[in-house]
């Protein structure tokens, strides 16, 4: 039962949990906040730890829940309409002309289908780019892709409609594609 000693949690799992939270939230303060809530909830509900599986896994489950809660509260405070942050950054205007066709050179670079990129390098770029798109778009992307939550659950947790979810996801993908192509093209090391 030594593992259940919360005094060792920060030392043993702090970096892992913090890294996980940071990768999803892209905000050091927010990551610290959810990690703290996770650890306190772990202490409080330690009686519920059944001893099956690792303590890290158990704390991870709590952390994931806390991250969703954080997104939900952020969304609640930001308002409920799509326009709150999406209008401020709709990549469509930079990528499409008025007729809805691609502007020439919309993406400066793209990997060729045959070439496998180093995924760990690319994931780093993607995470940087997540910080550059609106939080409302990034949050649904994180929950959908990184957390692999199904659409219904995301809609339910964030109190948004399915169509709103699709719009957010699409804008997130456009924004990330633009950002990644620019970063990749600007760095000679990545090549093309």
């Amino acid at each position: 039962m030594d593992e259940l000693n919360p005094e060792t949690w920060v030392k043993n799992y702090g970096d892992y949990l913090y890294g996980y939270a940071y990768s999803r939230m892209r905000d050091a303060n927010a990551a610290e906040e959810v990690l703290q809530e996770t650890l306190l909830a772990g202490v409080k509900h330690s009686g519920q730890y059944a001893g099956k599986g690792s303590v890290r896994g158990w704390l991870m489950a709590i952390l994931k829940r806390k991250i969703i809660d954080y997104f939900r509260s952020r969304k609640k405070h930001a308002g409920t309409s799509l326009s709150d942050d999406e209008d401020a950054f709709d990549p469509s205007t930079a990528l499409f002309d008025q007729q809805g066709n691609w502007k020439p050179g919309a993406f400066k670079w793209a990997p060729s289908p045959e070439k496998n990129l180093e995924m760990s390098e690319l994931s780093g770029v993607v995470q940087e780019c997540l910080s550059s798109i609106p939080k409302g778009q990034a949050d649904v992307f994180v929950l959908s892709v990184m957390e692999e939550m199904d659409s219904n659950s995301i809609c339910e947790q964030l109190s948004i409609t399915p169509s709103n979810l699709w719009v957010r996801m699409h804008r997130a993908r456009l924004g990330l594609a633009k950002c990644v192509s620019e970063k990749w093209a600007g760095d000679a090391n990545y090549g093309g």
């Binding site: 913090y18 890294g19 940071y22 990768s23 919309a106 993406f107 990997p111 994931s123 892709v145 990184m146």
Partner: peptide, 27 residues
Amino acid sequence: RFAALSKQINDSVMGLTIDDSNNKATL
């Protein structure tokens, strides 16, 4: 390009854990 980029972006972070990320944030 958009299709290729989106797929690679998706694959690079889908179910990403900290163990397989090289962008580990430390406390």
